[in-house]
């Protein structure tokens, strides 16, 4: 568990992060969402002390991060950054082995773990001897994730990890990311400005603006129980899409009768409708789902 307690940071007299508090539960993906300059990256970097907070405290599992050696703290926290941040002078193998080397792992252990991660991340072992500039953006990002995961640290900080990828690659990595067992027992804080990404990956979302947290909550809460106009306005342009995406089949059960279900119950409405709309034979089912969704929605916003 990561607890942030009234932390502030000023740059040149201007507040970048202004007295914010939040916490991330164990095994939870918490998304820090906001526009550029809202202070989300600063907040993230204060957790592994790449940026030192001016005031306030941050605790990891109850331990103040200031009480340990900064290198030890960082070795225990995986960090993934936007442009992969791979060392251009190291091969992929050396890049992935950076932290094990600092931790003085033996060669075999490092190699076994590297191979394990590569197969989980759908990377071929051929790339190990290559240099970062010889890889595609998506591959580089996967290597960046492998590097952050290798030491099995329970915490992962991700700074716009998929921000530099094209939409198709991004969608692929998103689905891999969600299905990756490795991540299911980690506490992850992910920074993004991409609203869809936040809703797709986040268990909870912290919406930030001008160095403050405006609202924290589950995706559903963000949409149906917005705290103020800012929150409502923020999601307005994506709203319908987001609603389709956060609603799963299970939610619609009460509104669906005599319906043959051949989708898993945690499929999103969006995915079901995508599939049904591409099949002309199933317009009936499509309409039923839409109707059920509308009924469900009425109750949510009421």
């Amino acid at each position: 568990m990561i607890t942030v307690e009234s932390v502030s940071k000023h740059f040149g007299g201007r507040p970048a992060v202004d007295d914010i508090s939040f916490h991330a539960n164990d095994k939870e993906i918490l998304v820090l969402l906001g526009t550029s300059g809202c202070g989300k990256t600063t907040t993230l970097k204060m957790i592994n002390r790449l940026i030192e907070a001016d005031s306030g405290n941050i605790f990891i599992d109850g331990k103040n991060i200031r009480d340990q050696k900064v290198e030890t703290l960082r070795m225990g926290i995986g960090f993934v950054m936007q442009n992969s941040g791979l060392f251009p002078n190291y091969t992929i193998k050396e890049n992935i082995a950076t932290v094990p080397k600092l931790l003085k792992w033996n060669k075999n252990k490092t190699e076994r773990r590297t191979e394990e991660l590569l197969s989980k991340l759908n990377l071929s072992t051929d790339i190990l001897s290559r240099f970062p500039n010889e890889l595609s953006g998506g591959q580089q990002q996967r290597v960046g994730i492998a590097r952050a995961l290798i030491a099995n640290s329970p915490i992962l900080l991700m700074d716009e990890p998929f921000g530099a990828l094209d939409n198709i690659t991004k969608a692929d990595i998103h689905s891999e990311f969600k299905s990756l067992e490795e991540l299911k027992n980690k506490t992850i804080i992910l920074v993004t400005h991409d609203v869809q990404e936040a809703f797709e990956l986040g268990h909870r979302i912290c919406l930030m603006d001008k160095g403050k947290i405006i609202q924290t909550g589950t995706p559903k809460e963000m949409l149906y129980h917005h705290k103020n106009g800012f929150v409502k306005e923020f999601f307005a342009s994506n709203r319908l899409l987001l609603e389709y995406k956060i609603t799963v089949l299970k939610d619609l059960f009460p509104f669906l009768s005599d319906f043959e279900i051949d989708f898993p119950e945690d499929s999103t409405v969006w995915n079901i409708l995508q599939k049904l709309s591409s099949d002309q034979q199933r317009t009936d089912e499509y309409e039923k789902i839409v109707k059920a969704f509308n009924d469900y929605r009425k109750l949510q916003i009421a």
């Binding site: 790449l50 290198e71 960082r74 070795m75 926290i77 960090f79 950076t98 932290v99 600092l102 590097r147």
Partner: peptide
């Protein structure tokens, strides 16, 4: 920054 974040 990446190097620092790795704990170097």
């Amino acid at each position: 920054e990446a190097a620092k974040a790795m704990g170097m």
